[in-house]
Amino acid sequence: MFFRIMDKSRVLDLVAGLSQDFEVLGPVSKGDAFVYQRIDDPADLRLDYDTTLLPPKKLFFPPEEQMMRFRVADNEVVDDEVYAAPRVIFGLHPCDINGLLLMDNVFLRDYVDPYYKARRDSTLIVGVSCTPQESCFCNAWNTDEVHWGFDIFLTDLGDRYFVSVRSVKGAELLDDHVETRPITDADTAEFQRVAREFEAGFSDELNTSQLPLLLDAKFESPIWDELGERCLSCGACSMVCPTCYCFDVIDRLEPDQKTGVRIRKWDSCQFTEFASVAHGQNFRESRASRVKYRYYHKQWGYLSKFERVLCVGCGRCARACLAGISPREVVTALEAGGVGE
């Protein structure tokens, strides 16, 4: 990896330059919150955002997408092409870049998912450093840092950005669109100071030791019943999660019933029917079992395959949950043996 320094004021140049060749997306404000959106005016880009309502997964794995068009008469696929225009997503925080890397394990390994892959392949990522918020706990999973999964990454040093360049395309983006200079020892020292300050900014350290084992050892714990009583089974946690990838597949016929589209849409393991089979058996009928499964899969199921937990500590689920259920609380409860309200 090599590094450059870019004056902060140059960001607008970079975005404007990129817009000539790419669709550029990034965080913009929506009321008091932020959302990833197409950037038509570089001034709309809000690199000072805290977090976005939906994570960038929506740009790779949309809430609802067409998988294929079909013809009923001969049960044939008419079209399953995936169209993905070249684009740059500007301003991803380390947690969200890590979130995409975790999604990659699911969608880009065995049985490569062509829809996700097409969008991933056509997208360049520009990351940006962040400030720990009250709800953040990325430090618990080491997802507060990111070492790959971006083309360039901008670390805020006050008046300038310390630019990490990861890919050839990233280097080209810089060369083509913006003026930068080499780093000095003073820049590196400041980079280190900022990193230490960032680390110190987290509100607490979450004790995650032996979590997968605890999930099994405390599988019958009353913690889950307490959480199940509170859970609203609304699925908001899954929707806003940068790493929840479950989906449902639905066929929709056109009004003439001759052709139709097979679509997929985000699903949630918190919904009653998520694990029920045609004969009527439901393998997770109680709310408690469903809440438990969400954590069991994230902290152990996924880990058993990919050696990482399926959480990046972004805190979105905790913010979205009306019942106030958060990974931080659940992990702490498992550690301590009870839900502390």
Partner: peptide, 9 residues
């Protein structure tokens, strides 16, 4: 299920 999930999207 309730509305919240689709509302979040």
């Amino acid at each position: 299920e309730p509305l919240c999930a689709i509302c979040k999207t």
